[in-house]
C-alpha cells in the first residue's frame, strides 16, 4: 500500500512524462488550466497511473470536473485504490 506522499510523487512523475515537462510539476498546479493538458492526454496519463499502481482505473472519476490540482488527483487515486481493495 502506497502512502499519500508516494502517490503524490507518482502522480507528479506521470504528469511530467505525459506532458513532456522537463521542469518539475507542482502539486498545487491544475492539470488543464496550469499545465496545459488536453483531452487526449487522459488516455496516456491513465495508462501510466495504472502501470504505476497495478490496478485498472476509471478515467471518468479520475479526471472529473472541476479541473484537479495534482494533489487532488493523488487524493482521487488514493480513494480509488482504497475502494478497490
Amino acid at each position: 500500500m502506497k502512502t499519500v506522499e508516494e502517490l503524490g510523487k507518482l502522480v507528479r512523475q506521470a504528469v511530467a512524462e505525459t506532458l513532456r515537462k522537463k521542469d518539475s510539476v507542482l502539486e498545487e498546479q491544475r492539470l488543464w488550466a496550469d499545465l496545459g493538458a488536453e483531452s487526449i492526454d487522459r488516455i496516456d496519463l491513465t495508462f501510466r497511473l495504472e502501470e504505476a499502481v497495478g490496478k485498472a482505473l476509471d478515467e471518468k472519476i479520475l479526471f472529473a470536473e472541476p479541473d484537479p490540482t495534482l494533489a487532488e488527483l493523488a487524493a482521487r487515486l488514493a480513494k480509488m485504490i482504497e475502494e478497490k481493495k
Binding site: 513532456r20 488536453e38 496516456d44
Partner: peptide
C-alpha cells in the same frame, strides 16, 4: 490537436503511444 504543437512533440510517436496504450 489543441496544444501539442506548442510542446514541439513528435506527433507520430505520440499517436503510436496512444494507440498502443
Amino acid at each position: 490537436e489543441e496544444k501539442s504543437e506548442k510542446r514541439e512533440e513528435w506527433r507520430s510517436l505520440r499517436w503510436a503511444r496512444l494507440a498502443l496504450q
